[in-house]
Amino acid sequence: MKLVLNIWRQKNQNSRGGMVRYELDGVNEHMSFLEMLDVLNEQLTEKGEDPVTFEHDCREGICGCCGFMINGVAHGPHRGTTVCQLHMRHFRDGEELWLEPWRAAAFPVLKDLLVDRAAFDRIIAAGGFISVNTGSAQDANTIAVQKHCAELAMDAAACIGCGACVAACPNASASLFVGAKISHLALLPQGQPERSRRALNMVAQMQQEVFGSCTNIGECEAVCPKGVKLENIARMNREYIKAAWAYREEAAAGGGG
């Protein structure tokens, strides 16, 4: 099949960038979207042009590296899929496609379709962890976890941090990502010691990175390749509101903790 590709080309973080039109022939419908771009890049390289930069690693839909906008939709037209798992059979022969990087102040474009998502790492570093003693792991069944809690935590933990939620949100909000990370640990007994501090710190960091606020629109949930639910944002709100009013510094003088 044949495709017309309008791709965002940008030399580096400081250059302006713009759409460049390419025509690509001989696309196989069994190719993944990234394989299709590999073919394009091969042709560009042969012509001595700069290949299109995009991020990828596992190409199995599990690492969260890949992702860009296809015709204004994060990860393209197929629901519950990363671009690496999106196949060309979902497109028509002769179709014109528009590829753009995620756009958010917190995700600066480094080159072409590649953005810097270190803001997510800093949010995780602010509180997306639990404290345990290293050494031999304790027996898996010593801590009882209710089944429905384990399942909800697992659903939240499915988040691969690809950034599609931010990209699709009209406010460039990271609420679904942060909500998933806060939920994942708040639902499990292992996450309890840092529960309040985690909610406060991760939300504060999210704000410091200049992500927008949630207006409960739901575009994030729709494009999430892992089906992370909006309910996680409500849980984040709950956790944050509770923590903001109930949190007490451990070192606080007088009274019980």
């Binding site: 759409m19 204004g72 753009e100 739901g218 729709a222």
Partner: peptide, 8 residues
């Protein structure tokens, strides 16, 4: 975005 398509 040059193109942004709301879906839901």
């Amino acid at each position: 975005y040059v193109k942004l398509a709301p879906i839901v």
